[in-house]
């Protein structure tokens, strides 16, 4: 069965004064029509670079060095620049995080939405401007006939984010790459935007790659989730499995270290959060073995040797952790049990 999008073993390299780094280091992912894949990770884990590389927007000193990005069966990395331009915007569109800077301040929002349609779909400006009004209505901007003539500075952050979504939708894409689309917004406005994205996905059968650092957002929007750490996917799972039974120590740590809002806090957790020790290592100084090893509470000898591959863990699940290495299960049996206990404590 072929997927709408299939990323195979993608590696992106950046040349820095301190040496070569790999913000994306062998990532494989799939995405089907109508599906939302949540991509979670902290800053510097490579999630934005991954999205940019799908559109081949990685620029110097960055370079896609190996792997494939199969879009409806064709490898995007082999397309001519001209063919790639046709994919961008028309088939795959991106929504950026910063609604304050992603719009051009000297053009009206209508002009900016219409421009994509004039360029990609060869519509006349007159038709395109009318369509821009319809798009603003679709993303629930009140009084779209008037607002289409507004400049970005005349709009609030939430309105600008809606304009960016309208712009992304203007050429009827099949896939939207949403990079932290609600991070800059207030929580009541975030709720409105998440609702809007979900409605559009249902109405148009859109596939969405939703990049975020917020586990709450993931729980609300995603069908499947991939957790990234220092350029690699460390855990992949259907959303309910991930939240009910997180496997990777990093996923566990992330979930435990965030205080809860609406759910009652577990007893005794009032003052001390189970924080992950240490910090994300800089990509220039990664450990030789598993990148999470220096912060991991469940360390095995194998963790210091090489980064673990993703071990399959049942339907749609995989985890890159030696604790789940099937061949090592016997040898690791006793320390692994201890580890499980500690996990229980972390969860409690």
């Amino acid at each position: 069965m072929s997927h709408l999008l299939e990323i195979r073993d993608l590696v992106v390299t950046f040349t820095t004064p301190e040496g070569q780094i790999r913000p994306v280091d062998g990532v494989s992912l799939t995405l089907d029509a109508g599906e939302t894949l949540g991509l979670v990770g902290e800053s510097g884990c490579g999630k934005t670079v991954l999205a940019l590389s799908i559109l081949r927007l990685v620029t110097e000193p960055g370079r896609i060095t190996s792997g494939q990005i199969l879009w409806k069966g064709r490898d995007l990395l082999t397309l001519t620049p001209r063919k790639m331009r046709a994919v961008r915007g028309q088939e795959i569109a991106m929504i950026f995080q910063e609604p304050m800077t992603a719009l051009n301040p000297v053009f009206t929002v209508g002009n900016q939405i219409a421009e994509t349609m004039v360029v990609h779909q060869r519509k006349s400006w007159k038709v395109a401007m009318q369509d821009a009004v319809d798009l603003l209505r679709l993303v629930a901007i009140p009084d779209p006939e008037r607002r289409v003539h507004d400049y970005p500075h005349q709009m609030s952050g939430g309105m600008r984010q809606r304009v960016l979504i309208a712009m992304a939708l203007s050429c009827n894409p099949e896939l939207i790459l949403a990079d932290e689309p609600t991070t800059a917004l207030d929580v009541t406005i975030q709720a409105q935007i998440l609702e809007l994205l979900d409605r559009l996905r249902q109405e148009r059968g859109l596939a969405v790659l939703h990049i975020t650092h917020d586990l709450g957002v993931v729980a609300e929007v995603a069908d499947r989730v991939a957790v990234m750490y220092t350029g690699r996917v460390v855990e992949e799972a259907p959303v309910t499995d991930l939240f009910h039974d997180p496997l990777h120590p990093y996923t566990l740590g992330l979930m435990a270290s965030r205080p809860r809002t609406v759910e009652a806090p577990p007893a005794g957790a009032r003052r001390r959060l189970p924080a992950i020790q240490g910090m994300v290592p800089p990509l220039t100084r990664l450990p030789a073995g598993c990148h999470f090893a220096p912060r991991c509470p469940d360390l095995f000898a194998a963790c210091q040797v090489a980064p673990p591959p993703l071990y399959p863990m049942g339907p749609g699940r995989a985890v890159a952790c030696e604790k789940f290495n099937p061949e090592e299960q016997d040898r690791l049996a006793s320390p692994a049990d201890e580890g499980d206990e500690r996990d229980e404590n972390a969860r409690a």
């Binding site: 929580v187 709720a191 729980a219 995603a222 809002t261 759910e263």
Partner: peptide
């Protein structure tokens, strides 16, 4: 009520 709940 607007805060996303961490339970799918």
């Amino acid at each position: 009520a607007s805060v996303p709940v961490r339970d799918p």
